[in-house]
Every structure is written in C-alpha cells, then in structure tokens.
C-alpha cells in the first residue's frame, strides 16, 4: 500500500526557499539529503528529520519529510524518544558544531553509547554562524573573533574520536561540496544498524571565508572503513581532519527497548496494591 511515490530528489524538497547565505555549504548538504532519501526510495512521510538551533538546524523545514525544529542542543534526545516509540520511522538528526558539540555535547556522548538506530549528521563549519561568528568547540585556537580576541587558545574538540570512544556504530566524514559522494555516505549511514555519525565539513563563507579552501584540502581516505576500534582510533587520532569517507563501521547490536509478548489488561497492574 505504501509503495514509494517519490524516488526523485525533488520529491523530498519542500516549497520553502532556504535562507542560508549565498555559498553556504548547507545548500549542498540539503541536496545530499534529498538524493540519499531518493536513493533509498523511502516514502517522505516515513522519514523524520530532527534538529536543534543554528544554521544547519533549519534543514528539516526544507525537506518534505516530517520534521522537528526543537530547542538548542537537544535534538538527539528528542529523536531518541521518537525512534524508540516509532521504530518504523527513519530518523535523521541534523546539527552543527555549536548545537551538537557544545550545548548538546552530553547528549552526543549518550546517543553514541545508547546506539539507537538513527543517523546523526553534523554540519561542521568551525564557527557559530547564526549568532555571527563566535568560536565553537571545533574552532582553531588562534582564530580571532569579537568574542575571542586573539583566539581562544583552546584546543579544538575531536568529534570523530569522541564518537568512537562513546560507542557510535558508524563514523564517516564528508565534504559538502561533494554532493553525490555525501549522498552515498548518508544512504549507507541510514542503512547501517545502530547510531551512525556523519560529520560533514560545510563551509561558512560569511564568517570563515578561509573555508572556501576546504575543497582543495579534502582528500579521500586512503583505506576503506575498518571494523576494528583500535585501528579506527589510531586512524582518527592521527588524521588531518580532511580525510573523507567511511572511517569506521561497527557491528554492535542497536538498542531496542524490551517489548511485551502480549499486552495485559490494566487491572492486572493493580494487583501490586491490593490489600
């Protein structure tokens, strides 16, 4: 009955015109989203795109899927509640480096650990864009901003290493400019059981014009994905941050809540209390 009506990327786009800055990498990420959905042939009403606050978090409303644009930093928790009660849905969470790694950092750890079957996409531009250029957990220590004159002096956070240590079951890095390659990785991340983490380097051309050079810095990973956590750890710890591809593909069983064999009558519950 629910044969997919839409298998073209355009069928997953809403009629709303995105209001990102011209040249923003997130336009490409949106294209990769819709291409991945089309590739998987998922009916749009069976997909939920959940986000928090920030430029990247605008993405749900630009899709033709169900969406939730919630509060800052809590998208993973909201998505977890949805997925455990609606395992039939495909749940994709969209975030950015401020929303996901700073205010939402604790939820990131626990979502990786919990390993619910969902896909977490972080559009990392190493800056808070929506609030006009403050340093994020992935901003380089010497990067000068109004809030951090002369730079933060603080070492950036390494999200892929954190994801691996916390138990994510699939880890990849993409570059927004490579729309088709990113779509392929997203499709694979969605297909992979458990918690899949995809970091997409998505330049902020307004507050980080230097990131226009990312297209020349990124390079495909020289070796394929490993299932060995030790190897993955060494690889992630030593890579240059521009290594693109699927870097880790784990075999952990996704978390699924216990389900009763048969539902009992409510009056059965009262027996605890009877005198």
């Amino acid at each position: 009955m629910n044969a997919p009506l839409a298998c073209k990327p355009a069928d997953y786009k809403s009629e709303i015109k995105p209001i990102w800055c011209p040249g923003c990498g997130d336009y490409h990420v949106l294209m990769s989203f819709t291409r991945a959905f089309a590739q998987l042939g998922l009916p749009p009403e069976q997909i939920a795109v959940i986000s928090g606050i920030g430029c990247s978090s605008r993405i749900p409303a630009y899709t033709n899927c169900y969406g939730f644009h919630g509060v800052h930093g809590r998208s993973l928790a909201l998505a977890a509640g949805l997925k455990v009660t609606r395992p039939d849905l495909t749940v994709v969470v969209a975030s950015g480096d401020g929303d996901g790694y700073s205010i939402g950092g604790n939820h990131f750890l626990h979502a990786c650990r919990r390993n619910i079957d969902m896909t977490y996409v972080v559009m990392d531009n190493h800056i808070y864009g929506m609030t006009k250029g403050q340093p994020s957990p992935t901003t380089e220590p010497e990067f000068d901003t109004a809030l951090s004159p002369g730079g933060t002096g603080v070492r950036p956070f390494h999200p892929l290493v954190v994801a691996l240590a916390s138990g994510a079951n699939f880890i990849a890095r993409c570059f927004s400019g490579e729309v088709n390659e990113t779509a392929d990785v997203l499709a694979e991340a969605i297909r992979h059981p458990g918690f899949s983490f995809v970091e997409i380097l998505s330049p902020c051309v307004t507050f980080r014009p230097d990131e226009k050079n990312w297209k020349d810095q990124v390079h495909p990973a020289s070796v394929g994905a490993t299932a060995d956590q030790g190897k993955a750890a060494r690889r992630l710890m030593t890579d240059d941050g521009f290594n693109i591809g699927i870097l880790y593909r784990g075999g952990r069983t996704p978390y699924r809540p216990a389900v009763a064999a048969t539902n009992i009558d409510l009056s059965e519950l009262e027996k605890d209390f009877e005198l």
Binding site: L78, T85, A260, L266
Partner: peptide
C-alpha cells in the same frame, strides 16, 4: 512494558523532557 509501552533512562532532565516531546510528536502519550 506489560502494557506495550517503553521507558527510556535519560542522561539528564534536559534529555528526559525532549525525549517525551519526541515520542509524543510520534503519537505516543508520554
């Protein structure tokens, strides 16, 4: 669980309330 429901332990109260917003969005009283 006995009545077909689910309980999820959250990492903090911020997560707990966002989890129930997510599940309720999906149609489950929470």
């Amino acid at each position: 669980v006995k009545v077909g429901g689910v309980l999820l332990q959250a990492e903090d109260e911020l997560a707990a309330i966002n989890m129930i917003i997510g599940s309720s969005f999906g149609g489950t009283p929470s």
